[in-house]
Design a protein around this nucleic acid. Structure first.
Lengths: 194, 194
DNA sequence: GTCTATAAACGGATAGAC
DNA sequence: GTCTATCCGTTTATAGAC
């Protein structure tokens, strides 16, 4: 039933290289299949290592997943865009990443695994670090942090529709229209209303 | 480790009542623990029935879950609110439901189980039926459907932050401020720009 | 048609040998 | 640092009783 990396050709790996191999295989399989359906056995097999090594190096499947997620913070630069262009830049990036898509799949896996308290906590932390804090720090006017949180909520909404639900109907629409309309909505919470 | 409904006191249930009992227990346990961690054994035990009956009556755990989800369409009335008040009504309802919370937990379970194509498909359908179609039908101006989709995306964003991530920081903020600011953003996509 | 009992297959975690 | 052997819990399928 599983074609990838036949378990027969398992070269034993140089000593000490198992950790990196497992981490790489985990990044690929978690992205492709999600947390639940990427089994420890499959990850180990794809890495040419033994399942028990996952526990040895990372402690648990969940800890391994958190390690993978931590290496996918791809929004840190983008939110440094000047506030006037931020909304358009973010929506454009969301639509572009939709085609490329590695961090996209990791995001989907992260949300879907947020049953676990530790994973949900990392999801919250990820939103906080990548959007809320950097944006709130630059906002002027009243309730800067609240507005940054609502901005992050709107971004998460578009991510959910594009990457989790995989809304084909929306993807068929005019990209420019999506960008201009959604960016306009984002700008409403960014703008101070003095 | 599990306290609920000790398996010892399993009165055999009247004939024909197992289906309803299982459905009720499933609604509760799926809401409380999510799709993955609500096991068929626990659901059956809570219903006073046998695990095999789940397969007999519903075909699979997944089909049972879809059945439960289908009975939670609680937004159909709300979206009939006049367009001028719609945004405020929806955000208010989101914040209120946060306290109450049964459909809230079902939503979280639905999103987290959207790995499965059939469950993801129901999530998309749910969004389509409860938001996109009824709203698009009433919108005036250009790109009515696209605007309805972007409205739904923003609503999903707030749902995600409130119900999935369980953002305590946002809940500590002033409710009125959240309502007015997020509703303003929602109104931007509802309004036609002629 | 409705339900019970049981077995098969798989996934994660762990102990301990090498 | 790596691997073997094994445990326990979950889902799914099946044979057959009522």
């Amino acid at each position: 039933m599983q074609l990838a990396d036949a378990p027969s050709d398992r070269r034993p790996l140089r000593r000490g290289s198992a950790r990196a191999a497992i981490l790489g295989a985990a990044a690929r399989l978690f992205a492709e299949r999600g947390f639940t359906h990427a089994t420890v056995r499959d990850i180990a097999a794809a890495a040419g290592a033994d399942p028990a090594l996952v526990k040895y190096h990372f402690g648990s499947k969940e800890a391994l997943f958190l390690e993978v997620v931590q290496q996918h913070n791809e929004w840190r630069d983008l939110v440094e865009t000047p506030l006037e262009e931020l909304a358009v830049a973010v929506v454009t990036a969301l639509l572009d990443a939709d085609a490329a898509g590695r961090g996209r799949q990791v995001f989907a896996a992260l949300v879907r695994a947020s049953d676990s308290p530790s994973i949900r906590s990392r999801l919250a932390q990820s939103m906080e670090e990548q959007f809320v804090r950097p944006i709130a720090a630059r906002l002027e006017g009243a309730e800067a942090e609240l507005r940054a949180r609502l901005f992050a909520a709107q971004v998460h909404g578009l991510m959910t529709v594009l990457w989790l639900i995989d809304d084909q109907a929306l993807l068929r629409d005019d990209r420019a229209a999506i960008v201009s309309r959604y960016a306009a909505a984002l700008d409403v919470v960014l703008r101070a209303d003095d």
